[in-house]
């Protein structure tokens, strides 16, 4: 009988440290499946962020490095420039990519570096215990916005994908979500495209992934999925941005 579903070779068989309902595990798996499907495991180099996903290398079975908080794209730029034959990608959260690393993000995109970026937007800082992220929604309560995010004090949710889409050297940006099986399939397609672009030397490609953080959203997993669908998507609409 033909085997049609199996554990990705690029994903280590290990137990997860992520919370129940967290999107990271799902997204790690999508990346691993895509790397298997494209046959690039042996030439892939991943850059893990600072945040919950710093331990991504405990799950992925290919070469990985950490980067200082926000500096993943500086590290990635150099690796790709000195090893253009390798496939280099970063996997970064909203705090890493859109707060402390905004400068690196904008300039790497503006140089049109031939890189793939997986941008996990869960509207909160997870690893440090649920503080406001640049993508935190107005009214959303976090440990540093106990009364909810207020536009006059903390500004508006930062739409990094839309910002980056203005840059001429950016090849591809799409926003996807992990809140339902249908959306996961679309997310995989987009992430695969972002890797294919790099293989084809197309330049900077970024996929923003709306991902649940039930622990710091203070809701059970199934409600977190509904919250993405009913609330978060209104602020961060899905689809191809560039």
């Amino acid at each position: 009988m033909k085997k049609i579903f199996s554990h990705p070779v690029s994903l280590r068989k290990t137990s997860t440290h992520y919370c129940p309902g967290c999107g990271h595990g799902l997204c790690h798996r999508l990346v691993a499946e895509i790397i298997d499907e494209l046959g690039i495991r042996e030439k892939t180099i991943a850059i893990a962020p600072v945040g919950c996903a710093v331990l991504a290398y405990d799950y992925w079975d290919f070469d990985c490095t950490e980067a200082a908080h926000g500096r993943a794209l500086a590290v990635a730029t150099a690796i790709k420039r000195v090893r253009p034959e390798n496939i280099v990608f970063t996997y970064q959260g909203d705090g890493d990519l859109a707060a402390i690393g905004t400068n690196e993000t904008i300039h790497t995109a503006n140089r049109g570096e031939n890189l793939t970026v997986i941008f996990i937007n869960n509207a909160v800082y997870g690893m440090t215990g649920g503080q406001m992220a640049p993508t935190t929604l107005l009214g959303q309560k976090t440990t540093t916005t106990p009364l909810g995010r207020q536009a006059n004090l903390q500004g508006f949710p930062l739409k990094v994908s839309e910002l980056l889409s203005q840059l001429p050297a950016v090849k591809y940006i799409e926003r996807v979500s992990l809140h339902s099986p249908q959306e996961v399939i679309k997310a995989k397609k987009a992430i695969k495209q972002a890797f294919q672009n790099q293989l084809d030397n197309q330049g900077f490609s970024l996929v923003e992934v709306l991902s649940a953080c039930p622990t710091y959203w203070g809701m059970p997993a199934h409600k977190a999925m509904s919250w993405i669908k009913e609330v978060m998507i209104k602020e961060f609409p899905l689809g191809r941005i560039k």
Partner: peptide, 26 residues
């Protein structure tokens, strides 16, 4: 050889981190 004018000192040293991690003299 690769030359990059970085967007900041932070980016520059972290590029050196990356190139060095990839085995290069940086």
């Amino acid at each position: 050889k690769v030359f990059i004018q970085a967007e900041s000192e932070l980016a520059a040293i972290n590029m050196v981190f990356g190139a060095s991690a990839a085995g290069m003299r940086a």
